[in-house]
């Protein structure tokens, strides 16, 4: 069976790292207009904005580049009452999408996690050949890797070597 999985980088998107204490999440959610996810690895989407819970007090928010104000402005407005840290990291990371029937196995060349246990619509911070990445399972056969910009050539190189390995069918 021919190898049919595609590796591609995605266009730039707005990214924000949000840190806040548990007692302030209600105010954050209210300001954003949707409920921030409450368990680690949970991803919530509202319109074009997504929020992924990475740690007990940490979320990664994304949106299209021209809609960044939708995140920045409402949170700035509640800052006085609900202290938090919102840092824009849009240019820090590049997203790589891996999609196709062999996507999971292709990622298993360098990802030590049991990817079968990563359910659709969930995301985690993990490592890919010792590069820290945020790995999201967008669909059963579609993953997204958010990689710090300077590591992208390394990760893309590994994925290209792995693709060649799969293509030769051994």
């Amino acid at each position: 069976m021919a190898f049919n999985t595609i590796v591609e980088t995605l266009p730039a998107m707005g990214r924000f790292s949000l840190r806040c204490k548990r007692e302030n999440t209600v105010a954050m959610s209210k300001a954003l207009g949707f409920e921030l996810p409450s368990t680690i690895s949970e991803l919530v989407r509202s319109g074009n904005v997504t929020a992924l819970k990475l740690g007990p007090d940490e979320w990664m928010l994304t949106c299209p580049m021209d809609e960044r104000a939708k995140i920045k402005e409402p949170l700035a407005a509640v800052y006085a009452d609900a202290v938090h840290s919102l840092t824009e990291v849009s240019s820090r990371e590049v997203s790589i999408r891996v999609s196709g029937p062999e996507a999971e196995e292709l990622l298993s060349t360098s990802c030590p996690r049991n990817l079968r246990e990563l359910t659709v619509g969930c995301g985690v911070r993990t490592v890919f050949d010792s590069v820290q990445v945020i790995l999201t399972r967008e669909e059963q056969n579609q993953f997204r890797l958010d990689v710090w910009r300077s590591f992208v050539p390394h990760v893309m190189g590994l994925l290209s070597v792995a693709t060649k390995e799969f293509e030769c069918g051994l």
Partner: peptide, 8 residues
Amino acid sequence: RHTHGCGR
């Protein structure tokens, strides 16, 4: 420390 995970 769960450095490359939740960070805690």
